[in-house]
């Protein structure tokens, strides 16, 4: 199969973002997904597609070999990585890598992806640590952690006053984060991210978790609106964000005060458990490039 060179794909995507505002599903992701959803997917073919894009192949090895993915052995080649991950997790990994590449952070938020990446890594680690309490795999938690806020750069590009809205939403103690955005712009990064994830054909649980990740009322009520997986994904990423705040000593959001209690009860954790998780997470290489 004819695979375009890396530069060509990236150029096409960037051109498309500039013209249309939304990054379309990258061609490599489309190929990998199509193959993985065949009744009998060919893992060798998956590796061939990924190797067609040197940048993605290199990032894949780096991502899956990090402790946050929880693989048992080290992968030295793309084929080994794909074999160890299986088709579903391979798709998740490629989507996560492609997302950071096609959605450049807006100038006002240069460190946007660094923050998301830390939440993603810590979510992956938490999924392993709390495996007896949730059925979320590390790759699933990692992907959600990275995609959770992908609507923010899009909103930032679209609405000129969005930076102020972000500030207001982050510090509003009563309203849901998304409610503040909706009052100002008629929509929210959660809904925008949900549609982006849908158009990239991520799993239904991931899409719904992106849509509802600030709906603290639903989390508090343990709403039947979303499945157990969806609620658990939201809880893991929110806990990851809280742990990061504990480690850094900086608290830029009010989300934990709105959702913390519901999350602790959902994951059956107490204050002592959280303290232990904070201590363990301090030693993790979260900021490594």
């Amino acid at each position: 199969m004819d695979v375009p060179a890396t530069a060509t794909i990236a150029d096409q995507l960037l051109k498309s973002i500039k013209q249309n505002g939304i990054p379309p599903r990258p061609a490599i992701l489309e190929r990998v997904e199509t193959e993985s959803k065949k009744p009998e997917p060919d893992l060798r073919q998956l590796a061939v597609f990924i190797n067609g894009d040197v940048g993605i192949a290199a990032s894949l090895l780096k991502t899956v070999n990090s402790p946050f993915y929880g693989l048992s052995g080290k992968a030295h080649t793309t084929q080994q990585a794909v074999n160890q991950l299986g088709q579903e997790a391979t798709v998740n990994a490629v989507a996560s890598i492609a997302l950071q590449r096609v959605l450049p952070p807006p100038p006002q938020l240069e460190r946007f992806w660094d923050g998301s990446l830390q939440v993603a890594r810590l979510s992956g680690w938490l999924a392993q640590e709390l495996s007896s309490r949730t059925q979320i795999t590390a790759d699933h938690a990692y992907t959600f952690g990275l995609f959770r806020d992908c609507g923010i750069p899009i909103m930032m590009n679209k609405f000129s006053g969005y930076r102020d809205t972000l500030q207001a939403a982050n510090t509003c103690p009563e309203k849901a984060f998304t409610e503040v955005e909706e009052l100002q712009h008629g929509t929210s990064h959660a809904l925008v991210g949900y549609l982006l994830a849908q158009s990239w054909r991520l799993s239904a649980d991931t899409c719904l978790a992106i849509r509802h990740h600030h709906d603290f009322h639903l989390m508090q009520a343990n709403s039947s609106l979303f499945s157990r997986h969806t609620g658990d994904l939201i809880a893991l990423a929110q806990l990851a964000e809280y742990l990061l705040q504990c480690i850094s000593g900086k608290s830029l959001t009010c989300e934990w005060s709105k959702m913390g209690e519901a999350i602790l009860s959902r994951l059956k954790l107490n204050g002592q458990d959280i303290q232990e998780l904070v201590t363990a997470a301090q030693d993790l290489p979260l900021s490594e490039n």
Partner: peptide, 15 residues
Amino acid sequence: PKFQQTLQALFTICS
């Protein structure tokens, strides 16, 4: 819930 906001999100990501 949020039919209107979803429409707005649609036109935020589509030109």
